[in-house]
């Protein structure tokens, strides 16, 4: 699944990022394989998405989120 499928409050582990579609800036802010990601809040129509990635809080658009693969963690 991709980051765009995450529900509000859910967590996941990033498994892969498509480096062609993802700005380097996002990687530098901690969006790297192995890091924990949580969907904190979504704007109407689930776009943009407010995330907590590895302790960094940031918002990205859905068009970016679909290029980030994740695995959900069982809570």
């Amino acid at each position: 699944m991709t980051l765009a499928d995450l529900k509000r409050g859910q967590q996941g582990i990033i498994t892969d990022v498509s480096s062609i579609h993802i700005p380097l800036k996002l990687l530098e802010m901690g969006c790297l394989p192995g890091n924990l990601v949580e969907l904190v809040q979504v704007a109407p129509f689930a776009d943009p998405m407010y995330l907590n990635i590895n302790g960094s809080h940031l918002a990205i658009r859905k068009e970016t989120a679909i290029h980030i693969l994740i695995e959900t963690t069982n809570e």
Partner: peptide
């Protein structure tokens, strides 16, 4: 332009 916005404390 990419949209990456930090949500500061």
């Amino acid at each position: 332009s990419f949209f990456v916005v930090e949500m500061p404390n």
